[in-house]
């Protein structure tokens, strides 16, 4: 039970960072922390008591393996997270070139 609660606490830490930080790069890093908590949660779900890593060894075929499906899902989700972070970084660099500052309180051109 304890690892699941730690995953949730990590998600809340990331959410707190997105809401209260003023620097643009810190918001992007907090979004990354939120993703990592989700990947940990997925990897913890597939555990079966007494299981080993799901690699088939030709010498000893019959064993109890842990569930390999969440591991494949996490691999795909990590690549998606990489693409999201790269997109965010590109927009942040162009914003710095236009406004001259990283502070989010200065970037309020659109109103209403």
């Amino acid at each position: 039970m304890i690892p699941y609660i730690m995953c949730f606490i990590l998600f809340l830490v990331g959410l707190y960072g997105v809401i209260t930080r003023r620097n643009l790069v810190k918001i992007a890093v907090s979004l990354s922390i939120m993703e990592i908590s989700t990947f940990l949660f997925f990897a913890l779900i597939g555990y079966i008591d007494g299981g080993v890593a799901p690699i088939v060894d030709p010498a000893d075929p019959v064993k109890t393996y842990v569930d390999p499906l969440p591991q494949a899902l996490v691999l795909t989700a990590i690549v998606i997270g990489l693409a999201t972070t790269a997109m965010l970084m590109a927009v942040i660099i162009r914003l710095y070139r236009k406004y001259g500052t990283f502070d989010i309180r200065e970037i309020k051109n659109l109103r209403g």
Partner: peptide
């Protein structure tokens, strides 16, 4: 300026 700011706001909320 306007388009970059709109895209940044869309990305953070869409990521959550």
């Amino acid at each position: 300026k306007n388009e970059l700011e709109a895209s940044f706001r869309y990305q953070v909320l869409g990521g959550i």
